[in-house]
């Protein structure tokens, strides 16, 4: 992977990820995750659901951003006109896959933060989202566009999204549960092949004209419980 893409995958990227737990804070508070074994199961389930969905959205956004806007691409293939409502369409597809209002807010908050970073990295980085996309763009959509701006292909966008789907809650677990960081990273290393497989599945689905929609009922419940919790250390 190109180093510029590693920047986008890095948890130290100043795009607000450190303050999100991906449902882990509530899972920890309710005892669902309390050790490495339950964390492993949590991460596998999150990867197969939210991870697959965000990977698909990121891949679709990357593919959309890479489409030439009217100009014939090098190689002489017929130009594919980028649909003017493409970003709006992707925004609606992300909404339709995110029934939890708290998760929609968290996704847009992280999207705003990543947009700020992308504009800092690539002057002129703009997403054609309508003002109606209240609260800013969804995170995986900005991520896909940023990967395209960095010269990356859709499967790389999917990979970074799927990777974030497990590293964000894993990092929160280290901070909330005091789990041994070496143990948590052993878990993440054990999931690496699955991250790649989920990214490949998402990218293949997008190439075939689809977009994954796997749901995680427990994460939906956790997201809304978290929003109502009196004590919380993470934004989501």
């Amino acid at each position: 992977m190109d180093a510029v893409l590693l920047l986008l995958a890095d948890s130290r990227l100043p795009a607000g990820g450190h303050a999100h737990s991906g449902g882990l804070e509530t899972a920890a508070a309710t005892g669902v995750v309390h050790d490495l074994a339950t964390l492993t199961a949590f991460l596998r389930g999150r990867l197969a659901t939210a991870g697959l969905v965000t990977a698909g959205l990121a891949a679709a956004a990357c593919a959309h951003a890479r489409e030439p806007a009217g100009n014939a691409p090098p190689g002489g293939a017929a130009p594919r006109a980028r649909t003017p409502d493409g970003w709006e369409r992707l925004d609606a597809e992300a909404d339709a896959r995110t029934p939890s209002p708290a998760q929609r807010r968290a996704s847009r908050a992280q999207g705003r933060a990543l947009l700020r970073v992308a504009r800092g990295l690539w002057p002129g980085f703009v997403l054609d989202l309508p003002a109606g996309a209240a609260g800013g763009p969804h995170h995986p959509i900005v991520l896909g566009a940023a990967v395209a701006a960095a010269g990356g292909v859709p499967v790389r966008a999917a990979q970074i999204a799927a990777y974030g789907a497990v590293t964000v809650p894993a990092s929160a677990a280290i901070r909330l549960l005091g789990l041994d960081p070496l143990g948590v990273y052993r878990v993440l290393a054990g999931l690496a092949a699955r991250v790649d497989a989920v990214a490949a599945e998402a990218a293949a689905s997008v190439r075939a004209g689809g977009l994954p929609a796997a749901s995680a009922p427990a994460l939906d419940v956790f997201a809304e419980l978290h929003d109502r919790a009196g004590t919380r250390l993470f934004e989501s």
Binding site: F42, R44, T49, R97, A218
Partner: peptide, 16 residues
């Protein structure tokens, strides 16, 4: 709405 429920090896995850 685009909503899929998969019952498979990961369904018993605390996240699902």
């Amino acid at each position: 709405l685009r909503h899929e429920l998969r019952i498979g090896e990961d369904a018993t995850s605390g996240a699902v």
